[in-house]
Simulated assay, not measured.
Amino acid sequence: MKRRAPATISDDDARLFREAIGEVRRIDPVPLPPSLPKPLPHPRMFEADEAAVSGELLDMAFDPASMEVGEELSYLRDGYPPHLLRRLKRGQFSVQDELDLHHMNAAAAQASIVAFLAEARQHDLHCVRIVHGKGLRSKAAGPVLKALTDRLLRRRDDIVAFASARPAQGGTGAVIVLLRH
């Protein structure tokens, strides 16, 4: 639909309009009241989180200082170039599938890893992630599923390399695995 141009107002129409409304006096604009300064933001949630930390640290059954230090897994099969492991640690490979072992016992986790890797080879996958968890609820023996995953992957001939995942991919609670083509 086309829009019509507004009709032009003739001098007669303008004169009739002025006569009809009478004398007009201009109203001066009223200045706006001054605005009050906005209050500065107050980080209430941050303060609440910080205040809660000391209580949470007392309730923890593990030493949080030892959570990430020295727990990284890494392995490179003999005969492969070291830059392959560096690239894996930097997250330069695209993860094609994932297995999550949370809430499994050692026997179920071992069977799941074996089946998962067989299926990955069958589908010609080259990079997968296995989430074993950090073992925070493990007793004095340490993280059971993490140790099991480490031992099992080192013994397999079809594993080229593995390394603990980047923090965004699970950190020391997961490994990224490179499979042989």
Rank of each mutant, 00 (worst) to 15 (best):
T149V: 12
H132I: 00
V114Q: 12
V128H: 06
P34H: 13
Q92G: 04
S54V: 12
I9R: 15
P29Q: 04
A107K: 07
V53C: 05
G79E: 04
A147S: 15
R151A: 12
K146C: 09
S94A: 13
R155K: 15
L145H: 03
T149L: 04
A115H: 08
R155I: 06
S10D: 14
E50A: 14
L117W: 04
I176W: 06
L136T: 10
D13L: 14
D28P: 07
V95Q: 08
D124T: 09
R86H: 14
R25N: 07
S164E: 10
V128I: 13
V177P: 06
F46V: 10
S54N: 09
L73G: 10
P29N: 11
P43A: 11
I130M: 04
A120Y: 01
D157S: 15
Q96N: 06
R44V: 14
Y75H: 15
D59F: 05
A174P: 07
R26L: 15
A109P: 08
V175T: 15
V69D: 07
Q110K: 12
L152I: 03
G133W: 01
L152N: 05
I113C: 05
P34N: 11
A106M: 09
G135E: 11
V128N: 05
D13P: 00
K38E: 06
A109V: 01
L178A: 02
L36S: 09
S164A: 14
I9D: 07
P82Y: 07
R3A: 10
E72P: 00
R121S: 07
I159E: 09
R137A: 10
E19V: 05
A51T: 02
A48C: 03
A115F: 04
L117M: 11
P81N: 11
R155M: 13
F62Y: 14
A109I: 05
E119T: 14
A141G: 05
D49F: 14
A174L: 04
D12V: 10
V160R: 03
Y80G: 09
D12R: 15
M1K: 02
M45I: 08
V24Y: 11
D100C: 12
